[in-house]
Amino acid sequence: MPSLDTLEQVASRVSRGEAEEFQHIVRATSARLVRLAARILGSQEEAEDVVQEAYVKAYRSLVSGQFDGRAAIGTWLFRIVSNGAIDALRSRARRPVPTDRVPDGQGDGIGSAEAHLALRELDDWLGELPAEQRAALVLKAVEGLESAEIAKILGCTEGAVEQRLVRARAQLRRRRNDDE
């Protein structure tokens, strides 16, 4: 399996028509991408759907020569997945998930029961935030990325990222004060 350093070389082989090489990219990145999407969405099932769609988009871009190689493959995939998760959150807001939905249980996906409870807690807690603020907060405080990287991923300026973070934290603080 190629290391993360060679993903660009693998991507260039895919764009030259060696389609089977794409599986190396999937193997090297899927765990991190599913975890990222699950943290933004608070659901592993939705996360896997978003990541699947992201890989199909990435493959299409590689073979059609639309990927210009300006960003590292990892950052580019993070961007596609984050945007997919934001879109999923928006469509969830337009068509709310029924309150009696079947919860992501222990047998649903890989990870401890504690991890799935934590995902649920994250979803409930961040549920009221607008999708972009929620994604920025997860990328910063949960994934541990720098604002400059988050700006590249979300396709905005560092200032816009900081603004989203300040607003998200202020809303969470307000809610906490209301609850107390």
Partner: peptide, 20 residues
């Protein structure tokens, strides 16, 4: 705390085959 607690999240077995 939630970051640490969700660290063990992994895709379902067979996810790579689904992507393929």
């Amino acid at each position: 705390r939630l970051a640490e607690a969700t660290d063990s999240i992994r895709p379902h077995p067979g996810f790579e085959a689904r992507i393929a």
